[in-house]
Amino acid sequence: MTAARTSATSISATPRHLWTRTRGLLLAFALLITAGVALAAMHSNSPHGSLDPRSPDQNGSRAVAQLLKSQGVSTRVVTTLDEATADAGPDTTLLVTLPDLLTEKQQHQLRTATAGSDGRTVLIAPGPPSLDVLAPGVRAEPSVSVKPRDPACAQPAATRAGRADTGGVRYSTDGHTAQGCYLADGLPTLLRTTARGQSDTVLLGAPDILFNHRLDEEGNASLALQLLGTRPHLVWYLPSLGDVSATDGGQRSFFALIPPGWRWATLQLALAAVLAAIWRARRLGPLVTEQLPVAIRASEATEGRARLYGKAKARDRAAEALRSATRARLAPLLGMPAAAAHSAELLVPAVSARLPDAGHDPHSLLFGPTPADDAALVRLADELDALEREVRTS
């Protein structure tokens, strides 16, 4: 007894085919993992982030803290609002690096603690979410690029520092007592407002003068020291979503909690998705023939094409392929040129003359309508084979 065996066809999935189809995705995934590990390794030596006075990175602010220390100003880093407000006083400068991250309740608490302290509050790039509470009467205008600008004001700190890398958020006031410097299109990017006593608030449109890699450019170091070094103590407040006060009563929208730049990131991801879709999409246009890299058995090619026709329910194409091939083989058997194979007026009379007593209708078999179902298509193939055999043997 012969054991039954199932042979693989040309469309059966093999490990080699699977590897060919998926190696591009696997390579992209490996590159993504490698890039993530590399970025993590690059940042592993710096546990702190941007504008952190403990960070030696290019966007850190350790250099400013060291210069302030040499001038006798102590710097204390805090990450909670309770710590920041507890240290507020007449001999303290409070620097808030991300004022827009504070909830409305936190903003009111901070404003209450600093309003009567006679100290200084420095806000880095505050926008509409925080200005109404922390700097009433001041509005944020569209941002501009950061570049060296002249003071264009009479503030002693600015005039002594001279040109500095300023820009970012611009500010405007409605009859508010304020001094603006470093104008961009007529609006200041550095604004100082005063309250009762000696308390004042400084709005800095961009943090660039505090970065390590830009401190030695223009008058950045001088301006940073004069803004942060007017009191013997500096409280460097780095707001965090992990602060307990951030979840107690303050309500912020989802988009307000997302870091700036999320719109550009979303746009870039959408563009990458479109490009990937175009890359993976099927090419439009006529098919281009090319030499096959390997020889494929005729039975496999026939089976593969038959399955494609069956999947597409293309009985018309399958029937025409069968009829066209039969006509092409019959024409030379009947002593006719190849061009006559597709002419019913020439081919059908020749077949009828060769087989006058045949039980087939040559015209219906060779040029007839599309079979109604798969069974009719199979019968057509059998009848075409029978017709060709009869012509060969006649």
Rank of each mutant, 00 (worst) to 15 (best):
D165Q: 09
L275M: 13
P332D: 07
T166I: 00
F29G: 12
L384D: 02
G186F: 13
S172R: 11
V37G: 02
R282F: 04
S343P: 01
A340L: 06
G49K: 05
G186E: 10
S352W: 01
A270F: 13
W236T: 00
T230D: 12
A246S: 15
A312Y: 09
I124S: 06
P232A: 11
A8E: 10
T97I: 03
A3S: 11
K147S: 14
G119W: 01
V235E: 03
L241E: 13
D200A: 08
S70P: 00
G359M: 05
S10Q: 05
D185Q: 13
L271E: 10
S199H: 15
L67T: 09
A375S: 13
R315F: 10
P239Q: 07
D316S: 15
T247L: 09
A63E: 10
G49N: 11
A246Y: 13
L271H: 10
A154H: 11
Q107R: 08
R307V: 09
Y237A: 06
G186K: 08
T112N: 11
R307C: 05
S253I: 03
L308Q: 15
D361Q: 04
V77K: 06
A40R: 14
I278G: 08
G162C: 01
D174W: 03
L101R: 13
G175Y: 02
P337T: 07
E303S: 13
L292H: 06
R263L: 14
G310C: 09
G261M: 05
P259N: 14
A152P: 00
L123W: 08
A206V: 02
A224W: 03
S245C: 03
V144G: 02
L238V: 04
V351M: 00
G186Q: 11
L32W: 12
L203F: 06
S253M: 04
S46E: 12
E300W: 12
P142M: 03
A270Y: 10
R76P: 00
A184L: 05
L284A: 13
L98A: 14
T194E: 15
T166A: 01
A135Q: 07
K313V: 15
L191F: 03
M336H: 07
I209P: 00
A41S: 11
T14Y: 06
A256K: 07
V274K: 04
L322F: 10
R305A: 10
E218I: 00
S352M: 09
G168M: 04
R21H: 05
T194A: 14
